[in-house]
Design a protein around this nucleic acid. Structure first.
Lengths: 234, 234
DNA sequence: TATTATTGTTACAAATTGAGACAATAATAA
DNA sequence: TTATTATTGTCTCAATTTGTAACAATAATA
């Protein structure tokens, strides 16, 4: 991770969101021997598109390609420049010579993205400076460094705004799913209860779904149909 | 405009939008002796918040303070790096020694904002490198450098998304206005015709407006009420 | 065969919207 | 003074959408 490879002062951070079936989770990194938690992020190579950089970092962390990834805000307040935090992370790092990481102490402006992925497809991988990359429930995040809590909040806000306009739920579900599973995604994102019959009526009227065979769960009740989205990921 | 004052590789561009009464206009700069047109923009001082930098640039261009200004996207493709365009601008500039502007040839990532202002309040002022700063109708913009046309398109898209959620029309109208004037703003932003009676019903039902006295225009018909917004600019 | 939990659909009331009609009215023309 | 004109504010009624509950269908179990 040499400075000369990257544009100085520019970073990105990703809010990587998965859905377990009943709650949203977010990937959080923990840095070696510091107790400091942060969003996964990275830097932009000198000859690389900004959005490509974020996509590359996401692939490195999740192993997945073609993920739904959306830029939602750029954070550039001076108060996010806290070199002492980065110094702690650098000094706790044993693998890399500390001098080669001094550029991390500079002020950075961070372009933030949120990514939606299928929770069960992912085995998170830490990066060079961190020793874990773990799913945390959105409602039980550890304290995050710098302004990363703000970044998460704004990501969820952006996700809510896009829930109908951009078909974001496609990315959080397996290829086929029941109406109840779809409803649970909506409820987790919007953090509300939704009336079952109204939801079902609206989803069917939207013409976005294809109905397939029933799924027999072994439970003592009527088996639900499964559905898929007509338009796959953009 | 010395490099050492500013963060390298980081710029902002502003889509400054005004409403004349029947169409949207945008402020466009023309560079000395080049025939090149661009959005007004600038750079971020090393000890300045990103959003403050954009606000400062806006004040310099319009003379107005407390303007509605919203960040909507950050443009960072490599193809927006076209040093030959900047070279043309620098070489056509007679006032500043060219060597001190060489840093403008670097690759820049640009954080884009849109601003909404009262068209009639503004006397646009050019900056050091440009010799005009002029209103152009949104539908008749000159060809713009780099990806500035994309930036404008995305700004209008963001504005449309915010038209109801964020009360953006406040900023485009004088303190009091008729229902028809308000409707014209909506029509200009959405680029559609709106049914008069439905619009009036919805606006009144929204409880956002205060009705004042009638305005006598001297025309041979019933005089309209004027309205103001209950909540002023955020 | 009855029971249980859930699902898909229908029915009806309530609310919202589309589209037009109409009365009110400020200035002008007769 | 009175009729005319253009526009505004409101109302009406149909069409559509939503809220709410009821109900029938059904897969497994008791």
């Amino acid at each position: 991770m040499k400075q000369t490879e990257y544009l100085p002062h520019i970073a990105y951070d990703s809010v990587i969101i998965g859905f377990t079936g009943d709650e949203l989770k977010i990937l959080i990194m923990e840095y070696h021997n510091t107790g400091l938690y942060a969003l996964p992020g990275g830097f932009v190579k000198k000859n690389e598109d900004l959005n490509e950089a974020a996509k590359r970092g996401l692939e490195e962390r999740t192993g997945l390609k073609n993920i739904f990834l959306e830029q939602f805000y750029t954070f550039g307040d001076t108060k996010r420049h806290q070199p002492e935090v980065l110094r702690t992370i650098i000094e706790a790092n044993e693998k890399t010579p500390h001098e080669s990481l001094q550029w991390l102490l500079d002020r950075f402006i961070s372009v933030a993205y949120y990514a939606l992925i299928n929770y069960h497809d992912v085995v998170p991988k830490p990066d060079a400076l961190s020793d874990s990359c773990t799913w945390y429930p959105l409602k039980k995040l550890p304290p995050l460094i710098l302004d990363h809590a703000d970044i998460v909040n704004r990501a969820i806000f952006a996700l809510r705004e896009n829930i109908d306009r951009k078909l974001v739920t496609v990315n959080l579900l397996p290829a086929t799913f029941t109406m109840k599973e779809l409803q649970h995604v909506y409820e987790a994102i919007l953090d509300t209860n939704i009336r079952r019959t109204t939801f079902q009526r609206q989803m069917l009227a939207s013409e976005l779904l294809v109905r397939h065979d029933k799924r027999y769960s072994g439970k003592a009740h009527k088996a639900p149909y499964v559905y898929s989205f007509k338009a796959k990921k953009p």
